[in-house]
Amino acid sequence: MEDYLFEIQLKVRDYECDIQGIVNNAVYQSYLEHARHEYLQSKSISFKQLTEEGKILMVSRIEMDFKRSLTSGDSFLVKLKIARQGIKLIFFEDIYRFSDQALCLKAKVEVIAQIDGKLSRGEIFDTLNL
């Protein structure tokens, strides 16, 4: 079993589906982003406050492997864990359909930081106690 740090349950809304009746591939990025923000909030880290302090966290790369489709009304879990890799913080995020625990998506999201307009060496990730 995966050793996740955080999970959040969400539900597919009708307008997130395409003409085929499945969640549009671009919508999955929103689910992943929402989970990352909620994770930071659970650690008492305000994304807004970091930005106001000149600490900009940004995605530099996303890899998504689609396994199964979600459809309107499906409840699902976004689960995540993190690792450091050089200047990057890596979020490993998986989406599971709630009803049958089927793996729907595996993602790897690489995040970098800019501090006061300059690319960080990643030290901010250590100070955030993630």
Results as ranks from 00 to 15, higher is better:
Glu2Val: 10
Gly117Phe: 12
Ile112His: 07
Ile22Tyr: 04
Ser69Arg: 03
Phe6Thr: 03
Ser99Gln: 14
Ser46Cys: 10
Lys88Leu: 15
Arg68Lys: 14
Arg36Pro: 05
Leu105Ala: 06
Phe98Glu: 09
Ile56Thr: 14
Lys118Ala: 06
Ser60Asp: 04
Gln41Asp: 06
Gly117Val: 14
Ile112Asn: 10
Asn24Ile: 01
Leu80Gly: 06
Ser46Val: 11
Met58Ala: 13
Asn25Leu: 07
Phe92Leu: 06
Glu7Cys: 03
Ser75Gly: 14
His37Lys: 08
Leu10Cys: 00
Tyr31Cys: 00
Leu50Lys: 10
Lys48Gln: 15
Asp65Asn: 08
Lys43Pro: 02
Ile112Pro: 04
Phe47Gly: 07
Leu5Ile: 08
Asp14Ile: 01
Cys104Tyr: 04
Phe76Ala: 05
Asp74His: 01
Glu53Trp: 11
Ala113Ile: 06
Leu10Arg: 09
Lys55Met: 14
Lys43Phe: 14
Asn25Ile: 13
Cys17Thr: 14
Phe92Tyr: 12
Ile115Cys: 09
Gln9Gly: 05
Gly86Tyr: 06
Lys11Thr: 12
Phe47Ser: 11
Ser30Cys: 13
Asn24Gly: 04
Gln9Met: 10
Ser120Gly: 03
Ser120Asn: 14
Asp100Asn: 09
Tyr96Thr: 02
Leu80Cys: 00
Gln85Cys: 06
Ser99Tyr: 01
Ala83Asn: 12
Gln29Leu: 07
Lys106Asn: 13
Leu105Phe: 00
Leu40Gln: 12
Phe98His: 03
Phe47Met: 12
Thr127His: 13
Leu70Lys: 08
Glu52Asn: 15
Val23His: 00
Cys104Leu: 00
Ala35Ser: 13
Lys118His: 11
Leu128Ser: 06
Tyr4Pro: 00
Lys43Val: 07
Lys88Val: 02
Ile90Ser: 08
Leu50Met: 11
Lys67Ser: 10
